[in-house]
């Protein structure tokens, strides 16, 4: 049996990769990919911890909901990014800065 710490290490690694992508990428789609990494890290954690919570199965349940919500979130974000491209001809978040102090 694979010990729980392995799952936690992998998920922590995934989360950090995702966060790094969010902070460094200069393309909104790539930022979304980074966010997806972070969500999947959490999902992995939930499923791994869910082993120890067989009766209510909260972890498995949460993982399912998180996957569905992540898909919904990406759909909304992609629609918005499409609109941004229409007006800016670019999806670089650093170049779209007409609003600032």
């Amino acid at each position: 049996m694979i010990p729980i710490s392995h799952f936690m290490l992998i998920s922590a690694g995934l989360f950090c990769i995702g966060l790094y992508a969010v902070l460094t990428r200069r393309n909104a789609i790539q930022v979304l990919i980074g966010i997806e990494f972070m969500i999947n890290a959490a999902v992995l954690n939930f499923v791994a911890f869910g082993r120890y919570d067989k009766i209510s199965g909260g972890g498995q349940m949460f993982a399912l909901f998180a996957i569905v919500l992540a898909a919904a979130g990406v759909a909304v974000a992609l629609a918005i990014i499409l609109n941004v491209y229409k007006y800016f001809k670019s999806i670089n978040p650093t170049k779209t800065d007409t609003l600032r102090d």
Partner: peptide, 28 residues
């Protein structure tokens, strides 16, 4: 308006992903 929406959506998605990871740790 599109820029505001994109900033809101991306920033919000990152924050909710961080929150989700925190919740998974709390569950653990």
């Amino acid at each position: 308006q599109t820029e505001a929406a994109m900033k809101y959506a991306l920033f919000g998605a990152v924050c909710s992903a961080i929150m989700l990871y925190g919740m998974s740790l709390l569950y653990g």
